[in-house]
Structure formats: C-alpha cells, structure tokens
Amino acid sequence: MEVDLLSGPERVPVSPVAPALEARRVSKVFVGRAGEATLALRDVGLEVQRGTFVSLIGPSGCGKSTLLRILGGLEQPSTGEVRSTTRQERGGLPAVAFVFQDYGLFPWLSVVDNVAFGLRMAGMGKRERHDRARAWLARMGLAGFERSYPEQLSGGMRQRLSLARAFVTDPEVLLMDEPMAALDAQTRLLLQEDLVRLWEETKKTVVLVTHSLDEALLLGDRVVVMTARPGRVKLDLPVGLPRPRNASSATGVAFSRMKADLWAALRDEVEKSLEHS
C-alpha cells in the first residue's frame, strides 16, 4: 500500500520501450558441402535499445558477423527469433543499412551511383537520388569524386563511400561489420572520429562488429563480448565515457580499466579459438 501512495503520476513506470532489435535464443548451424555441420551461434540473446551504439567483440570465427547478418535479415536463424520494432518499409527503403568490411561497393557503378543504389532500388527518381547522394558525398569529404569509380579511390575513401551509401537511405538501424579492419592505423583513427561525430549527430541505432578493443570502447554505449565458437554472449559492459567523444576519450583511467576488463573476458576466448583452429 505504501508503494501505491508513493507513486505519483510522474513515478508510474512508463511502458517499457521495446528494443529496436532483439535476438532471442538465436542459434545458427551451417551445413557444408560434405554434410558437416558447424554450430556458429548458440542461444544468443541480445537487446539493442533504440538510439544506442552497441559494439560487438569476440575472437575470430565466433559468429559475430553471422549474428549481425541475422539481426539485419540477410541470414535466417536456425532456431530462435529476431524481433525488430523498426518500421519495415519507408517508401521501399529498408529500415536497416549495412556497412561491410570489404566495403561491398559495386565496381561497375560510379561513386554517386553507388551511394544512390539503395534509393534507386526503392524507385526514387534519378535527380532526387543523385541530389541526396551528392549531399552525403560532400558530408563525407568526397565531393568532386562523383564520377570516379570505386577502384580509383583509396581504402579510406571507399569506406567513407560505403558509409555515405548507408546514411543516405536514412536507416533506423545501422549494422557495421568490421568497417575499418582493412584500413591502416592512421586512416582508421580518422574514420573512427568521423563515426563518433556522425553517430552523435544522427543518434542511429548501431551495432558495430569489431576486433579492436579501443574502437569498441571509443564508439560504443555498450560493449558485448562473445565467446569462442559456438558464440554466446559472455559479457555486456556499459561504457560510461561522456559524450561528445573524440580520440582523446580513449585515454584516462576509466578507459584503461574498461579495456582491461574487456581483455580479461576476451583473452580466454581468443585462446580457446586458437586451440580449435
């Protein structure tokens, strides 16, 4: 009774907001040509709240990329389910956009047509989609390269291009699969800063798969550590670093302590994955 008295109107708990993405007891089995089965994921549960940035980290081959693709609907879970509260279609545009490690750019399309690809598939007219694509190219520092082809660009420029392709569709959810793994260390630092800035401006729901502890902490609101194959969630660490963040956020005691915690959780798993392979 006391509890009821204490709870004024402002204290009534709001109905819990459903997460933008939720994986429930997701498992994934791959069957090879010789019929051999590989369990990539086992009973993975993951909630991604709207407007948060979740970094996903784990040893090589732990199924984190598979989980990302399942979350984005590019792959079906063998068991379990993925729930999404994103509006599925907005004028034919997918609610989820991907950024791939190897960029996944179409070599036969010019830079501007690569960016506009999703808009074109959604049936948007040429002028409008090119205008939007140009605006994002300018924002990503690629103005003047509209008529080039991806192969003429450097790695860092290609990844900016693939970010522009994702952002131009104004997705609710952005799924990034090791987007900076193929870049050199300095380019990587610059792009991480770009991403921090973009995220803080747009507040998309993001899941980022990465190998880098620094990147996971610098960018994420949470860092989820996965076990060696079959992948499960081992640790879900909130990152309390203040925003806005920049490269200097990756210094200081709090950062170092979190990095040590992450490595402590990850180290055993990396060793296990080495023993397996």
Binding site: R69, G72, L74, G92, L93, P94, V96, A97, F98, F100, D102, G104, L105, F106, F117, G118, M121, A122, R165, T169
Partner: peptide
C-alpha cells in the same frame, strides 16, 4: 558473394 549480399542489403 559479397556484392550479392550488398545488393540484397540495399533492396535488390
């Protein structure tokens, strides 16, 4: 296959 996947991810 990465380009097929990229195509699928962007609605093709």
């Amino acid at each position: 296959p990465r380009l097929v996947e990229a195509g699928r991810a962007y609605g093709a």
